[in-house]
Write a protein that binds this DNA or RNA. Structure first.
Lengths: 204, 204
DNA sequence: GTCTATAGCTTGATAGAC
DNA sequence: GTCTATCAAGCTATAGAC
C-alpha cells in the first residue's frame, strides 16, 4: 500500500533532512527517551520550536527515521538470488550486511535499540514486511539444502546468524574496542573470520 | 579490589532484592531513561519514597543492578579450561552462554542496552575486568590454533561470534518470534544449529 | 520503615511577535 | 519560516508526620 507523499518545498525537504540526520545521531546514542528535542535541535542547528514546525512531535521524528531507513536495511537480503551459486549468494549477503554495519553504525544501533525494547513502533513491520521477506528467502535456502548444494542447516537460524554476526560489530562497538584495545579496524578481521565460518558451515 | 559491603538487616536485604528484581524487569524493558521510579515501585509493591529509602537515587539502583549481575555474566567464559579438549571446551562455552540467554533474557537485554548506548556506566569494567578475562582466554585459544588442535581462527572474533550468536536470541527476541511465527522454542533449534556451526568451523 | 505531600527541575509542545 | 517566552505535565528527590 502506497502512502500519499505530501508536497514539500525545497527548503522544507532540506530542513527535514537536517533534522532527521541530527535525530539519528542523538536517538542512536541515547535512545528515544534519553534524547530531548533540544539536543536534536542543537545538533541540527535549529531552535526547538523550529524543529517542531517541521515535525508535529518527537515521536513523529522517530517514526519518520525508522520508516525512512527500512528500505536501506532490508536491501541486502532482497538481493539474495535463487539463481546464483548458493555459497556465493550467502557470502555476498554476509559481505553486504557487514559493510552496512561498518558504514551505517548509527542506523544499526537505532534498529537494535528499537527491537531490544520490544519494537513498540515497528511491530507490524516486523510481522509483515520482514516476516514475508524472510519467508521468501528461507524457501530459497531450503531448496539449496534439500538439493544438497549446501549443508543441511536450518534456514531461519542461518539468517539469524548472519544478522547477529554482522550487526554485533556496530551495535556493541564499544565492547569490541574495549576488548581488542587500540588496534586495526575490526571489520577487516571480521570479514576474514566470517568468510572462513560460512564456507566451512555451508560446505555440502 | 574488594569493596566494603555495608552491614544490612534481614528486611533491608529482602527489600533491596525486591527492588532490584523489579528494576531489572523495568529497565530491561524500557531502558534507563524510559523507566520511572514509580514503575519500579509499583512492580516492587512499594511506594516511591520507600524505594528511595533503600537506594539514594534511580542511578544507584541501575548501577547496583549492573555490578550485581556482572559475575553471573562472565561466569561461562571463566570456565573455559586450557586443559580440556579444545572443541568440547568451546562448545561447552557456547552451550552455557545460550542457556544464560534463555534463562536470563532480561539480564541480557540490560547489558545489551547499556553497551549499545556506549556503556556510560561500565566503561572501566569493560576495559579492565572484561578485557583482562578475554585476553586470558584468547591466549588459551591461540595456543590451540598454533598447535593445530583447532582450525586457524582469530580468537577475538571467535569469542565475539559466540557472544553475538547466543545473545541474539534474548536481545532480539521480538524479531526472532516475528520472523519464525508461532512455533516451537527457538532455543532448541538454535543449539542444533550452533553445534553444527562450531564443529565445522573449528575442525582442524 | 513507610507513608502523604510537595518542592524543584526538566521537557514536550504552543502562543504569538517578527 | 524562525524566533522568544511560556505553559502544563511528568519526573526525581526530599520533608516531615506517623
Amino acid at each position: 500500500m502506497k502512502i500519499q507523499q505530501p508536497r514539500r518545498s525545497r527548503i522544507q525537504n532540506k530542513n527535514r533532512n537536517v533534522i532527521l540526520d541530527a535525530a539519528l545521531q542523538e536517538f542512536s546514542a541515547r535512545g528515544f527517551s534519553g534524547t530531548t528535542i533540544d539536543q536534536i535541535a542543537d545538533a541540527a542547528g535549529l531552535s526547538k520550536p523550529n524543529v517542531l514546525y517541521y515535525f508535529p512531535s518527537k515521536e513523529a521524528i522517530y517514526r519518520g527515521l525508522l520508516v525512512g531507513l527500512l528500505d536501506l536495511w532490508l536491501a541486502p537480503l532482497r538481493e539474495l538470488d535463487a539463481e546464483g551459486d548458493p555459497v556465493e549468494q550467502i557470502l555476498g549477503y554476509v559481505r553486504r550486511k557487514l559493510l552496512l554495519s561498518r558504514d551505517y553504525p548509527n542506523e544499526s544501533r537505532l534498529f537494535a535499540s528499537e527491537v531490544l525494547h520490544g519494537a513498540p513502533h515497528m511491530t507490524e513491520v516486523l510481522s509483515e514486511d520482514l516476516h514475508d521477506l524472510v519467508a521468501e528467502k528461507v524457501s530459497i535456502i531450503a531448496g539449496w539444502t534439500a538439493s544438497g548444494r549446501i549443508a543441511e542447516v536450518d534456514p531461519h537460524h542461518l539468517i539469524f546468524s548472519i544478522w547477529a554476526l554482522t550487526q554485533h560489530y556496530a551495535d556493541f562497538d564499544v565492547q569490541v574496542r574495549a576488548v581488542m584495545g587500540e588496534g586495526p579496524d575490526p571489520y577487516a578481521g571480521a570479514m576474514i573470520f566470517l568468510e572462513h565460518l560460512f564456507r566451512r558451515m555451508l560446505a555440502p
